[in-house]
């Protein structure tokens, strides 16, 4: 199975060839806020255009969907998926069990991916999703690599592993940032929460890790364990982040594919330029999520 490196794009203006050059596929739309300016999940015309542009770039196009919809919001989810299907979307990602239930019923045969908020903790949960046509899962971030190995083997499903990016740590339906500014401008700013050495990034309805999850020096191990689907989390990141982080990982993946011995140090140095708060990867190794496990000194 070929490696897939994918990322996330919320708006049409982010479909920038140079930024997406390192990636094989893109998840379209901002799943955490319907009021995010230019959100492809709201603007169907822009969504169609985005899918066409990705097609033109030779990349697979996936649609993300709202992560926590209330019942009255479900018809809009159905409509955006219908628009995406008509435009030739390759698969649809859902974080919400109800959305998976609805899409399986109304779009039979549609390839479904379960996102990180679908809370896949066990192989039994993954098998439940498989009944609905889910072919790919993002395991809950709390799982260790050993647990994910088991989950992958027990289900036969494709597993997405995040290689880099700020981990979504919690979701609410009430935007935290409305107390600090006007919507939508306020969530365009970098908004950090700090307490001693704890740092989080708030993007409104979701809080992200302050540190970037970084698996650069474990890439060989991940490939050795049989993982081939990798995500660089770039939702709400600057274009330069999407472009440069993607390039670094693409370079590392190509080096490993060519049988080269890839030294992590230089990669980490380049990655460190894109986040002042350093790296983490502890969940994958059964530790605190904000811990960094690795031989190289991060950042």
């Amino acid at each position: 199975m070929a490696v897939e490196l994918h990322t996330q794009v919320a708006t049409l203006e982010e479909i920038e060839p140079s930024c997406l050059e390192p990636y094989d596929a893109v998840y379209l739309g901002h799943p955490y806020c319907g009021r995010y300016p230019g959100n492809l999940l709201v603007d169907h015309g822009a969504l169609r255009e985005a899918i066409q542009r990705l097609r033109g770039l030779g990349k697979r196009a996936y649609l993300s969907t709202p992560a926590a919809p209330a019942t009255p919001e479900l018809p809009a989810v159905r409509e955006v998926v219908a628009a995406a299907v008509a435009a030739g979307i390759d698969a649809v990602e859902a974080h919400n069990l109800g959305v998976i239930h609805m899409l399986a019923r109304e779009f039979p045969g549609l390839e479904l991916h379960a996102g990180c908020f679908a809370n896949v903790y066990t192989h039994l949960g993954a098998l439940e999703l498989k009944r609905y046509g889910v072919t790919r899962i993002t395991p809950n971030f709390e799982l260790s690599l050993d647990e994910i190995d088991y989950l992958k083997e027990a289900t036969g499903l494709e597993v997405t592993l995040w290689l880099h990016g700020k981990i979504p740590l919690g979701i609410t339906r009430d935007c935290f940032l409305l107390a600090y500014g006007e919507c939508p401008a306020v969530c365009r700013e970098d908004f950090w929460l700090r307490h001693r050495d704890w740092v989080l990034k708030c993007i409104g309805t979701v809080v992200l890790s302050g540190q970037d999850l970084c698996m650069a020096e474990h890439l060989g191990d991940l490939l050795g364990r049989g993982y081939r689907i990798f995500c660089i989390g770039t939702l709400t990141e600057a274009p330069a982040y999407r472009r440069e982080v993607g390039r670094i990982y693409r370079e590392a993946l190509e080096g490993l594919a060519a049988g080269a011995k890839v030294a992590a140090g230089p990669f980490l140095g380049r990655l460190a330029a894109h986040n002042p708060h350093g790296f983490c990867n502890g969940y994958f190794f059964g530790k605190s999520g904000r811990d960094y496990v690795g031989a190289a000194v991060p950042g």
Partner: peptide, 26 residues
């Protein structure tokens, strides 16, 4: 956060072994 949709504690805190000796997941 929505209940069941938060893993902040596991990100920030370190958890080891319970007093009963049971290994606690971080």
């Amino acid at each position: 956060f929505l209940l069941g949709r938060c893993w902040l504690a596991g990100y920030l805190r370190r958890v080891g072994v319970s007093r009963e000796g049971r290994i606690l997941y971080p």
